[in-house]
Design a protein around this nucleic acid. Structure first.
Lengths: 338, 338
DNA sequence: CTTGACAACCAAAACGTTTTGGTTTATTGT
DNA sequence: ACAATAAACCAAAACGTTTTGGTTGTCAAG
């Protein structure tokens, strides 16, 4: 059906070896032949069959990304931005991106195994790292190249990019304390996600540094969704002694918090301050605009992908690990306490 | 490195032909041999090399999805939900999903050509169909299987799933008119997207049916972003005779509109009504919750994917075309005019 | 005994590349 | 004139699978 190297060989009256070598610019092909081969290839619209190529070279020029989906539906703006970042960089390097979606579990692990063993992909980008992460164990054990976005709690001797969650939280606390707040509540991400640990740690450290009291009823666990933020905030607001600022584990949660606050007839940024974490594009346009910590997700996608490709191509000797310092973005959801 | 069919053959003392046929349950292999082969395959952790398989069978068992990204960043919750829907269904059929991201243009078209010619994918899911769409022309001309989410304005003799945008808009207008509104503004999606046409058409038809005046200054074009909604709404609100309801072309736009309204010191759902289109999960939790038209994106992803696989496998003779009737979800961003 | 049918197996070709290890022809140095 | 070198080319093997078109041995029927 489609044109192969053999068709070109026939047309130019050379062997397929010569055609292949001409196309790859080997120097045992005469300049005339090279030019001819290239012209004919162009004319015939030749594009190499990647499966044949992969079979011979024992690689696929593709990278894998399995989205951990929680629940039946999922709609996390984080993913689309991250995918775009990874995908863009991948295509710059002429790699394809193979995406699957599985909830964490046995099937998910099986999918990793399949994809690598069936030679579909050369390596993986791992996202939403768990506190103890089976995927990382599997890939490390098999020697499959991968780069993770995030760190596990335990062993960290693998390549990753991560943001310094502790620093991010510290910046938020510093900001609120500078405004005059002393009563801070924190709706943390779920315990089993690795970055929870870092953010909590930053929160605690900063509170301690400022000599703030941390009440256990002000420390709650959300689930990264708007609904979760809404519910936790309602609980916080009906306390006898409610906090003057609510720090959310991510922006979605913060939006939920703002809804709850407004439903209580309070004004965000005046009666009570709310902060997020991630700085998704929507944060700039919420009402009021959200004070949050900027995480350059698109850029992180780029970095992770590039590191992975370097790793696959053997351009990397050490174990690349990058920690980005996130930046506090102050908007009007935070203000001095009443 | 990894275990091949040849390794199994050696272990069980049969030819590779027999092993292959045993694994595929051909009936010229004795039950004993089949059992033995399967057991050994299991033990050795055999997983077929997809590249070799694809080379021989001339297919890849993968489907392609190229995201049209507008601008450098992009964060459209629509995509993550759609990808999850397509990806999930694909994995149920044991297909992989190859995702790329390109802005519309020459490079994008080239990517389609590459992916199909290099045998990376067996067919495509096309998303965000344009009013006149080069991608569809290319694939049709080459006889590559594809299913689109959306319809082009012109020829519609190809497989697609779409929602009935006209009906959706009609429901919105009916709802608002029932509440007592007579002055409706519409911030439409960009002109070059196909569904714009249908939604505008529905808007016009419904307005006419109710004998409403359609002023040109109330008819504006947005860009599907929050920022766009914000800007267009500001313009609408500063008119001498502003509308009492603003209909947005999608939810993101509606969020921008709500911000602008609130910034003008007006209350959404009381002083002015705002509606969206899509019903992204966030719509339920915005402040106030958004009246919008529900589009089951995840389900549409599923349908599109399944149709495509049927098409690839030749299980489909006709030309499947499905139009879904979307459903109006009334929340508190819409109410009677003051 | 043959013959035919059937069960169980297998060698070789094919898919489209790249790589290996050549061969042939022309050119150069002595 | 001859060997050595260089330039341009190529046949065959390999990657891991499925498919094609067999072969071999056994058994029942004639």
């Amino acid at each position: 059906m489609s044109v192969t190297i053999r068709d070109i060989a026939r047309r130019v009256g050379r062997s397929i070896t010569t055609v292949s070598r001409a196309l790859h610019d080997y120097d045992d092909v005469s300049p005339e032949t090279k030019a001819l081969v290239r012209q004919v290839a162009e004319e015939m619209g030749y594009i190499a069959n990647k499966q044949a190529l992969g079979l011979q070279k024992r690689r696929s020029d593709a990278i894998g990304l399995i989205l951990p989906t929680f629940g039946p539906r999922f709609s996390d703006p984080f993913y689309s931005e991250f995918i775009a970042g990874v995908g863009k960089k991948a295509s710059q390097f002429e790699r394809d991106l193979v995406v699957s979606a599985y909830p964490p579990g046995e099937q998910e692990i099986q999918a990793y195994r399949q994809l690598v063993q069936s030679r579909r992909v050369d390596g993986f980008v791992i996202v939403r790292v768990r506190a103890v992460d089976e995927r990382i164990d599997l890939l490390r054990q098999r020697g499959v190249p991968f780069v993770a976005f995030g760190r596990t709690r335990a062993a960290q001797d693998y390549p990753f990019v991560d943001e310094d969650g502790a620093s991010g939280m510290r910046q938020v606390v510093d900001h609120l304390v500078a405004l005059g707040h002393r009563k801070l509540a924190f709706i943390a991400p779920p315990e089993n996600l690795n970055f929870t640990h870092l953010r909590l740690q930053g929160f605690h450290a900063a509170c301690q540094a400022h000599g703030l009291e941390i009440r256990t009823e002000w420390l709650r666990e959300g689930d990264l969704t708007q609904r979760g933020g809404f519910e936790q905030a309602q609980a916080l607001l009906s306390l006898d002694d409610p906090p003057t600022a609510i720090l959310a584990g991510n922006d979605l949660t913060a939006f939920g918090v703002m809804s709850a606050v407004q439903e209580h007839g309070l004004q965000v940024g005046k009666d009570i301050s709310v902060t997020g974490f991630d700085d998704i594009p929507m944060a700039e346009h919420s009402h009021p605009p959200l004070t949050t910590v900027h995480q350059p997700i698109y850029t992180i996608g780029n970095m992770v992908c590039e590191m992975l490709i370097d790793l696959i191509d053997g351009r990397l000797n050490g174990m690349p690990q990058t920690v980005l310092d996130p930046q506090l973005i102050v908007r009007s959801s935070s203000g001095p306490p009443p």
